[in-house]
Design a protein around this nucleic acid. Structure first.
Length: 436
RNA sequence: GGCAAGUUACCCAAGCGGCCAAAGGGAUCUGACUGUAAAUCAGACGUUUUCAACUUCGGGGGUUCGAAUCCCUCACUUGCCA
């Protein structure tokens, strides 16, 4: 594990002003649905229990939605409970039913590779030290050896089709014109089996997950009840939404990933810095370990001096440090300060400017290169036509000077040190390096 | 297995032989106003060598001067029947 991950873990603590962990996670807005509240509350207040949360390898990295779960795992661990981090080597081969359409199946070798990547990510957010050290499990270990006949006889008998059909994820698809394959229909059984398996081998009695997984969570608690006659619990966290109705966790239409190769620390920091006033306090509760008192203070600051964006800055610093480390966060902030600063890029020293540009999407080109093409090369636009339109609309700047000719080249705009800063709109930046 | 309906751009959704690069809405992007916020108003939103050309309406084939629109076929989806 990287140093900064360990450093982050040692700094974390739950807020001692809450009487118990249940009160704290409720206040943070992490509980949308759960099994019987009184039982669950007593369970969490009692001796250490084992609980689990699963992550399916449907991409090469986890994203911000997963971070909610990782932090909930960590909060429960800090309260003394024992986490199991499950990466779904088998469930990832199937894919849980999305409300809109059937998933495209991934190659088994691709999924296997993603399992490794996700395990590495998960292990950075929980501690593997002490009495309640975290453990990693992979559901492929117990599903792969299972024959189809055993599956149908031993597991399938516990599931009623009527119940399965009523699950939101399934019924939404049945009522849509996309329908659902038997493969995805069966997903809830696999996830139910996981919980039963972990109950048997580790005494795991609680599963957490997003509320969109509620059907899959209860599939496990029901199975444990039927197969073992025991009660297990589940907590569904709310889907994080933006107050303006758009989807949370998207930047420029793409998911915000935890992998710095997929979403740069710079972009990650900017994502959080741009959080709406209306959402920032809720984000602090979910994504940071700040105490209630500290968050209340920031809430007051948002009301009194919104233009300072103190809450946004704190949020961006904390979450970016948590995921990428303080060093990378400082670099991201320095880059932003240099580039968003008061305009005079030429006054920056060349080393500062060059290192700032390395934080951005960048490319290397000759001074004679057309700006319209450079925008495409750096990903600021997706076609030359789009570049031209952006320039015509007055939305493109080189070194903070608006470009007014769609056919312009970089000539004359290269700063000392052989660099140029491209900007689209107010805040989308990229760098160009011009070799001598 | 039989019958019927359907598959349009990032998403939803019109179009039903030429006036279709394809209405409308959402999302997204840009400008103005701002606090690297929200709301609002305006513009853009297939590609390109942009007064024009080129490639699109599930895949393939055909009819026609001309097809997203008609025919055949394949794939997939939904509903009803078995």
């Amino acid at each position: 594990m990287s140093d900064h991950a360990i450093e982050q873990l040692t700094q974390q603590a739950n807020d001692p002003s809450f009487p118990d962990i249940w009160e704290e996670i409720s206040w943070r807005g992490l509980v949308h649905v759960s099994t019987n509240v009184d039982d669950l509350k007593a369970l969490l207040a009692g001796p250490p229990i084992t609980y689990y949360c699963g992550f399916d390898p449907t991409a090469a990295s986890l994203h911000l939605g997963n971070l909610v779960q990782l932090l909930l795992m960590r909060r429960l661990q800090l309260a003394g409970h024992k986490p199991l981090g499950l990466v779904g080597g088998s469930t990832g081969l199937i894919g849980d039913p999305r409300p809109t359409a059937e998933r495209t199946l991934q190659d088994a070798s691709t999924v296997a590779q993603w399992v490794g990547l996700l395990q590495a990510q998960v292990s950075r957010y929980v501690s593997f030290e002490g009495d309640n050290a975290a453990r990693l499990v992979n559901n492929l270990d117990w599903t792969a050896p299972l024959s189809a006949i055993d599956f149908l006889r031993d597991v399938g008998k516990h599931f009623r089709v009527g119940t399965m059909l009523k699950k939101d994820a399934v019924s939404a698809r049945l009522n849509s014109d996309a329908g659902i394959s038997y493969t995805e229909f069966s997903y809830q059984i696999l996830q139910g089996m996981d919980f039963l398996e972990l109950f048997r081998s580790y005494g795991c009695v609680l599963q957490t997950g997003g509320s969109d997984q509620w059907g899959n969570l209860t599939s496990g608690t029901d199975l444990i009840h039927r197969a073992e006659g025991s009660h297990a619990h589940a907590i569904g966290t709310p889907l994080i939404t933006n107050s303006d109705g758009t989807k949370f966790g998207k930047s420029e239409g793409n998911a915000v990933w935890l992998d710095p190769a997929m979403t740069s620390p710079y972009a990650f920091y900017q994502f959080w810095l741009n959080t709406d006033d209306a959402d920032v306090i809720a984000r602090l509760k979910v994504f940071t370990f700040l105490t209630r008192a500290e968050i209340d203070e920031l809430a007051a600051a948002v009301l009194a001096e919104p233009f300072r964006r103190a809450a946004q800055k704190r949020l961006a610093w904390l979450v970016t440090s948590l995921v990428h480390g303080e060093g990378a966060t400082t670099a991201a902030i320095n880059a932003a300060d240099a580039l968003f600063g008061q305009g005079e890029l030429a006054h920056l020293d060349t080393a500062t400017l060059a290192s700032a540009l390395h934080e951005l999407p960048n490319t290397t080109a000759a001074a004679s290169a057309a700006i319209a093409q450079l925008l495409v090369d750096t990903g600021l636009t997706s076609s030359v036509g789009e570049s031209r339109r952006a320039i015509d609309q007055g939305g493109v700047y080189v070194n903070n000077v608006r470009v007014d000719d769609a056919a312009a080249t970089l000539d004359g705009s290269v700063l000392p040190g052989g660099v140029a800063v491209l900007r689209r709109g107010k805040k989308t930046l990229a760098g160009v390096f011009v070799p001598e």
